[in-house]
Computed example of a mutant assay.
Amino acid sequence: MISAGTPLFTVSELAAETDRLFKALLHVDCTPGKSWDYEACRQFAPLTLEINRLKKEKDAVILTHSYVEPEIVYGVGDFKGDSYYLSLMARDAKAKVILFAGVVFMAETAKILSPDATVIVPDRGSGCSLADSLTGDQLRQLKAAYPDAAVVCYINSTADVKAESDVCVTSGNVYDIIASLPQARILFVPDRLMGENVRTELQRRGVAKEIITSDGTCIVHDVFDAAAVADARLRFPGLKVVAHPECTPAVAAVADFVGSTGAMMKYVKTTPAPYYLMLTECGLVGRLQVETPEKHFIGGCRLCPYMKLNTLEKVRDALRAPRPDQIVMLDEDIRRRAARCIDRMFELAPKD
């Protein structure tokens, strides 16, 4: 695994790093066919040591989404979490270099909020079925059809779409922000299923809004099935089912809890149950296995092929000498308009 250009580390440094990784990843078992045993950690150690050394040399921080592999999150990540938290960290970062281990729209968000930093992404192919489902041109056409609507974009969207929107939202603040808007009609993009779940939740809260959506969905969350949830409840008495609002309304209706990545983690950590079924990406299960090793998860999660394009080798190479395609560049007019959209989210989001 060590390439010709990799610096040498002492036996004691490698042993200490292997022990650190093994202790952190001991309970992880969320990706079929992949292991985080001691031998795997021994193989990761030269890479994590080099990456952490490069961060210091280049004044870099690494933002890691919860869906990327645990050896990245716990081996080299400076900040780990969901889109909203990482947006805050990107906004407040003072580093010269921001490496975003996630997907491209997240790296774009980091560049929007930290324009003076060099923002890099390990794999330019790490797209998102939601973000890639709608372009700025397509949104302009929708806006022309609904000129009286407030345009609300989910954070899983491109910089072009954010630049055309009035306010950005995350799965954690979407209900409160939409409820606070004066417009009765809301054009919500790009997630159709989340839009349907928002409509249902606002009706439950007694908030009268007409929600119009585009037709994007998440390839991870749109495949979960309500019948499978019913079967799991029969096999595991006392099971708690935790779902993301990108799931179908049918799945959301039979879940015990529906919430953002951060909210799902908080729910599992604070809600006792003999078993948990996580209807989300497997990386979140990996984090919970690390941080709540006493909890029991029965499987059912799905892998995001885009998130899994992030590897330690790609992170290392991007920090060493990023290729032009790994450096996130944005038109300044688009960046400024997108920044206003995100700043509006920060203004309207509930303060904890």
Rank of each mutant, 00 (worst) to 15 (best):
D225V: 11
L25N: 09
K295N: 11
K351S: 13
F105T: 08
M345E: 07
T217L: 03
C247Y: 13
A15I: 02
S126Q: 04
A60L: 05
K308W: 01
H244W: 07
V290D: 10
N156L: 03
C218Q: 04
V223C: 08
F257C: 01
I62Q: 01
H221W: 03
V151S: 11
T10L: 04
D317C: 12
V220E: 00
E108C: 08
D343G: 08
M1P: 10
S126R: 03
V161P: 02
R335F: 02
E164C: 10
D333R: 11
E164M: 11
Y175T: 04
F224W: 15
M89F: 04
A321V: 03
S180I: 09
T217S: 03
P272L: 10
M345A: 08
Q289H: 12
M264Y: 07
R335I: 12
V198S: 05
E246S: 03
C128M: 11
T261F: 10
A110E: 01
G102K: 00
T158D: 15
V258S: 04
Q43I: 05
R344K: 15
D343Q: 13
L47Y: 00
N173S: 14
V61C: 03
W36E: 06
T118D: 06
C341S: 12
G206D: 13
E294N: 13
V229T: 04
A117F: 15
H27D: 15
L279R: 05
F79L: 07
G5K: 15
L14G: 01
T10E: 02
L279C: 11
M265Q: 02
D343T: 09
G125S: 14
G262R: 02
D59I: 09
T271K: 10
P322Y: 03
